[in-house]
């Protein structure tokens, strides 16, 4: 991990310019430019609001914010993971021309997605301003955790994807499944308080880090309280462990990647 931090430090210029370039492209390629950063989460919210609240008459008061929290968070996570998976293959041209540490290509997308995530979260904060307070700052811990989780997934998935392009398809299915297995459109209590679901299933459900993650975001931004730190700390610790393994895996296997892409 230290070596990676060193790589990042040495190549921070590259990260900065790639970050700048990627953001700028989203602005200059569209007529609405920056406005898309705000419209994107709102359009998704409107769609799910229509289906759940109007068609199914479920959800209850404040559902739009509950859904927005879940959607913004999930969207950011799934885009990060998806783009991390294809990062090496997408940047094949660069990898074959510049002998940069390949870890960099995995780092860029989660950081960019985190930027968009912060914009989405800001919309929620403004919308639900009574919940703001000193605890709101804890959101940065969660955003950092999001970046780490995506990078960790990317360490493994990007290599698999380089060796077998099927990985990208499988990841899309897995993320779609994860969307429903995470409390994106419903509060996590719906599962925990449901007595017809066996305890074992609830246990497996709680193994999904996004369950705790999304709950924590809602606790912060909707209820205006500090989140329960215990599950988040566990997710953090597990992520760090896997990240270390992932980095070793990546270093060992990225050697032959240029030839495969």
């Amino acid at each position: 991990m230290l070596k990676t931090i060193n790589d990042i430090r040495e190549n921070r210029q590259v990260l900065r310019s790639q970050f700048y370039a990627n953001l700028k492209i989203t602005v200059v390629t569209t007529r609405l430019g920056v406005l898309w950063w705000i419209f994107d989460p709102l359009i998704f919210m409107a769609m799910y609001y229509f289906v759940i609240q109007i068609v199914f008459q479920k959800g209850g008061p404040g559902y739009h914010l509950l859904a927005l929290c879940g959607i913004v968070t999930w969207q950011s996570f799934s885009r990060s993971v998806n783009q991390c998976t294809t990062a090496l293959v997408r940047n094949a041209a660069l990898i074959k021309q510049a002998a940069l540490p390949m870890v960099l290509y995995i780092l860029i997308t989660p950081v960019i997605q985190a930027f968009f995530y912060l914009i989405g979260l800001t919309i929620i904060m403004v919308w639900n301003y009574p919940a703001l307070g000193i605890h709101t700052l804890a959101i940065f811990i969660l955003v950092a955790l999001m970046i780490l989780m995506s990078i960790t997934a990317g360490m493994f998935l990007s290599i698999f994807h380089a060796y077998a392009r099927d990985t990208g398809n499988l990841v899309s299915y897995a993320l779609r499944f994860g969307f429903f297995m995470s409390p994106v459109l419903y509060p996590a209590e719906k599962i925990y308080d449901n007595e017809s679901i066996p305890e074992v299933a609830k246990f497996f459900y709680s193994l999904n880090p996004m369950v705790h993650f999304i709950s924590a975001v809602r606790e912060l931004l909707l209820n205006g309280r500090m989140f329960d730190w215990q599950p988040i700390l566990i997710v953090f610790a597990v992520t760090i462990c896997f990240l270390q393994i992932g980095l070793l895996f990546f270093r060992k296997n990225s050697y032959y990647v240029p030839k495969m892409i």
């Binding site: 210029q13 590259v14 900065r16 310019s17 790639q18 700048y20 370039a21 700028k24 492209i25 200059v28 390629t29 041209a93 660069l94 021309q97 510049a98 940069l100």
Partner: peptide, 24 residues
């Protein structure tokens, strides 16, 4: 190297030369 077609030549100088290891 790393040219982004949507961006200007000046931006691409920035991107390309940072990939080549130049500082800002």
């Amino acid at each position: 190297l790393g040219f982004k077609n949507e961006l200007t030549g000046r931006d691409n100088v920035l991107i390309s030369s940072s990939l080549l290891g130049l500082s800002h």
